[in-house]
Amino acid sequence: MKKKKSNPLSRREFLMICSKALPFTGIFFIPFTADQILFAQKTKEYDPTQHEYAMGINIHKCIGCGRCADACKKENNVPREPYYFRTWVERYIISTDGETYVDSPNGGIDGFPEFKDNLEILRTFFVPKLCNQCANPPCVQVCPVGATFLSRDGVVLVDEKYCVGCRYCIQACPYGARFLHPTKKIADKCTFCYHRLVRGLLPVCVEVCPTQARVFGEVGLQSSPLRRFLRFNDVVVLKPSLNTRPKVYYAGADGEVR
């Protein structure tokens, strides 16, 4: 609320807004209708230097419904074919003989069929995956022309009009989070729904997650749901040995997850 610079509010107005904004503390002021979204954009300039985002994923809460992967495709017009994903859900099955089986049929969008092999299951769980929005992103490092970059608010983005389609970034990403857009012929990846963030909305995968297995928010804000997530969970990042410094944190991730 501090950032609002328009006319001074009356106490009543202020409290009203606060009460509305209370459920989404941590995500600055949230306008309520499309009109207000546009209005807010015009009146209040979004300042990227004031934000830094991260995501938390609680594996214990993921039910593998695949709504995130589905909504992501719908929100960002990702090709529907089963080999282009900005986010997807993996199923891990660790059998009693120590073997690990992983699958992700259509990214989990159509649900997970019963595992046919007659396995004695030791542990099993779902793991949502997406671009880790690394603070030390190898994909940005290798881009020869500066078409993929770390924005000032810490999100790794792709410049559609500048990408030459050399695919070096796809090779450099350790998480398989990038793909070549089949018609645009450019590298494509998760943007944390950047166009939603600047409008004060949540990334769509977080929005539709029915169990709140995904948590999103500001890194620097004490009251953000993300801070709470980081405070109360033992978190890990994927492939820490590569020093990519991901900003997607996993709670309850098994050692087999990679």
């Binding site: 989404f24 949230i30 309520f32 209708t33 499309a34 979004y46 990227p48 909504a71 719908k74 929100e75 960002n76 500066g146 078409a147 993929t148 970059f149 770390l150 924005s151 000032r152 983005l157 410049d159 559609e160 009009k161 500048y162 943007t191 950047y194 166009h195 939603r196 600047v198 409008r199 909305l201 949540l202 769509v204 929005e207 539709v208």
Partner: peptide, 23 residues
């Protein structure tokens, strides 16, 4: 930084499809 600053505005201009539960 080493990128086209206008690209950020182009990404921001992407239309939203999911309005969010607040709406």
């Amino acid at each position: 930084g080493h990128y086209r600053a206008d690209a950020v505005n182009e990404i921001v201009a992407q239309e939203i499809n999911y309005a969010g539960y607040q709406a």
